[in-house]
Design a protein around this nucleic acid. Structure first.
Lengths: 128, 128
DNA sequence: AAACAGATGTTAGATTTTCTGACATGACTT
DNA sequence: AAGTCATGTCAGAAAATCTAACATCTGTTT
């Protein structure tokens, strides 16, 4: 009958996002505090999440499970999101930074990045 | 990236459903009271709606705007939903009942039913 | 016209959900 | 041992939602 959700529309309260992601409210709020996500707010200041937010959270969860830390994930996003961005200097990861990220990952015997970015645990669990 | 929502999963609070349907909380609760919808409840008794619920509400809204009343819509659903149902006697509309529904609709210079059921205002407004 | 019925508005009081901020804790690093 | 990171937990405040009751508006019936 319908379709593809307008994925940026804030429609989900935190309680539902908790269920969808298996994250605690504490974790979700922490990731926001750490600028990994920026959910919308209602007039009354309650967080309201889009499906994109949920995807992002699942991705964050995945990276964390692979041994990356929040700072590393943030850095990853900063660079990943540069391409389309109009202003904001086209910050690239220095070689040193990249190596540092890689090293971090190595420590935890995780798979190489290419794998990570095509991870499974996205919303397809809940959609069909 | 993803997909088709598992449309029966209760994920939306009433505030969002109000936005999506342009109905008031009062209307939504009334339609539930009148057994046109049966949204899920949280442990704390808050209504939580699925995308199917939203579709149903848009359909209800459409029928009401066409001059049907709640009783007529309910009857319509009772018969429409019989086919797949296991128990529940295969109640059909008597000729008299059908004529009564039709007459009701006539009064309000609405289009014939066939039109109504393929109405436009479903979630495609919000999905893409 | 008065009475009635159906759908919706409005308000009040109670309960649930979410919020922020603070402090606690467990696992690693250093 | 001390420090850091990610998360747990708790308290108090504010927002969102609930039910129930009564009000109002629009047609319908008598």
């Amino acid at each position: 009958m319908t379709n593809r959700v307008r994925r940026t529309m804030p429609i989900l309260p935190i309680s539902i996002v908790m269920q969808l992601t298996d994250l605690t409210a504490r974790q979700i709020r922490y990731y926001e505090e750490q600028k990994l996500i920026s959910p919308a707010r209602t007039e009354g200041n309650k967080r309201m999440f889009s499906l994109n937010d949920v995807d992002a959270l699942l991705e964050i969860k995945d990276y964390l499970e692979q041994g990356l830390n929040v700072a590393g994930i943030r850095k990853l996003y900063e660079t990943k999101e540069m391409p389309q961005n109009d202003q904001a200097e086209p910050k690239t990861l220095s070689d040193a930074e990249l190596r540092s990220l890689l090293r971090e990952e190595m420590k935890h015997q995780a798979r190489p990045f290419s794998q990570a970015s095509q991870r499974h645990g996205d919303l397809s669990r809940f959609f069909k």
